[in-house]
Design a protein around this nucleic acid. Sequence first.
DNA 1: ATTTCTGCAAAGATTTTGCAGGGGA
DNA 2: TCCCCTGCAAAATCTTTGCAGAAAT
Lengths: 180, 180
Amino acid sequence: MVHRHTTETGSVESRELPQSLYDNLRKRGLRLTYQRETILEIFREQPSGTHLSAEELHAKLVERGASVSLATAYRTLNLLSSLGALRELDFAEGHKHYELKHDNLPHQHIVCLGCNTTVEFEDEDHFLEESGQKIGARYNFEVIDAQFKIFGLCCHCRQAKQLCPKQAPAKRTKGIEVNL
Amino acid sequence: MVHRHTTETGSVESRELPQSLYDNLRKRGLRLTYQRETILEIFREQPSGTHLSAEELHAKLVERGASVSLATAYRTLNLLSSLGALRELDFAEGHKHYELKHDNLPHQHIVCLGCNTTVEFEDEDHFLEESGQKIGARYNFEVIDAQFKIFGLCCHCRQAKQLCPKQAPAKRTKGIEVNL
DNA sequence: ATTTCTGCAAAGATTTTGCAGGGGA
DNA sequence: TCCCCTGCAAAATCTTTGCAGAAAT
């Protein structure tokens, strides 16, 4: 029934699901549904470093003909995050973003407060990750994730000298996340 | 009219306002109002490390008899943040928090995903702060703030083994932010 | 056959905004 | 006096939830 994942050969009923997720679901008495599979699949298809909001995810679902409701998108994002499959990101934007948790090189984000552009940088030699572990341990925490976020103005917005970055540019509508 | 601040001797019209803020307001053609003064004063009175949400701030305003509307609280929080007087914090909670920006030792946060407790740790020798500056510069960003946030489970919640931390505990009602 | 999930629509929570009147500079 | 600010209420966003039917094990 189940199968381990090595590269990309997936079975029918649980495509390329990393074995751990399927197990995690079962462990909790949860079920593997078409919606959950599809959502995870979408995250896998995104270029590395993509982070989707609930609305963006839903748009991609609709786009591919999978009629998954927005409510389910929200529920699944929360579920997959609590399972450790997704990482929840909070830029100071008014809504959350999610990205697939890779087991390769961890990365962190730089966010432009002017245009909401985000740039990633890698946590080479896992320095930040390990710092998070150490500091957390010092305070008796079981660390789940450590996020280093740098807020600032990109070269673009710095030139435009937008003194009140929260006003105009961060339109907070649908598909933001532009260029650079 | 204006006055520099040294220790705590404040004038009547602009209590202990750090001179820089008053200047920043003027520089932008903004005004020094009773509401803005009072809000900043409240932040100053909080024990170091306190971070208030808009609702919490508003409660404190009402509590002291200053009838400042919630809308103004929101507007002022945004304004003071954009002026650099406050730091906007985003724990994965559904609403933002704000804390006074001190010029002394910078600090960062550990957040329990179970009970929303936050613990602070100091960024001794400004290591994280400087890292933020360096990394930002590398990507041509003007760095405004760098936040290192560690998410995990505190000893309490770890024992309670709340496998789905987003569900029950984070009630997302009013005054959360408890103990520890 | 159970028990979990989903979709829908409605409710909830947080934050922003239009407008008319009040108040700094 | 000028025009920025505030309060109020309404609106806009984002997210969660109750319920009945659908689906997974």
